[in-house]
Design a protein around this nucleic acid. Sequence first.
DNA 1: ATTACATTTGACCAGTTTTGTCAAAACACA
DNA 2: TGTGTTTTGACAAAACTGGTCAAATGTAAT
Lengths: 97, 97
Amino acid sequence: MSNFGDLIRIAREEKGLFLRQVAAELGIDQAIISKFERNERKPTKEQVLKFAKFYKLDKETLLVEWLSDKVAYDLQDENLADKVLKAAEQKIKYKKK
Amino acid sequence: MSNFGDLIRIAREEKGLFLRQVAAELGIDQAIISKFERNERKPTKEQVLKFAKFYKLDKETLLVEWLSDKVAYDLQDENLADKVLKAAEQKIKYKKK
DNA sequence: ATTACATTTGACCAGTTTTGTCAAAACACA
DNA sequence: TGTGTTTTGACAAAACTGGTCAAATGTAAT
């Protein structure tokens, strides 16, 4: 199962960059990026988009990864997760109209 | 489409109670309950359980309503909601093991 | 229209959580 | 050991939450 941290760590390694370099480029402290890569902290939406742009990753893919991490985290110790997701789906569909 | 606020407002009206009375009974300020009923504020999990008990509503039903409101809210202006929910489902399944 | 009572609104506070900064500690390895 | 990278943790600033209260608004009866 993938997650946001893995995606950006792999992208960085593929490009052979150090945290320091990415940090300078994106204006984000390298300690924080380290935590993002280990899923210890959640980035803001803006930061997600910065990573997508910089690493040339698909914006949507990265956002989905990030948001689903968040949702999964919120529901982690709920045994009602299935029901919740189904209900949420209905609500979102409904709102669209 | 139902939501947490509607459920507790209807329950209160069915019992013919005033906000003031429910507030006193549950130890929650009536202004806050008013906001819950209009979905202007989200209660804590503890408060959800207080309402379930007091109104004799099914605990699980109310929790699902509450959590799905929250998830739907988080995803409201994301056109990726479908993908996010599917990904989150996978992640939750995966975690369970 | 005035009274009486219920609900809603909004300003304000306190406590918590989140986000960012920094330097030291830990790690990797020549 | 020395050099460079990553991780950790303490700290502060900012943002968010949850609560309190009183005034404003709504509603219905007289």
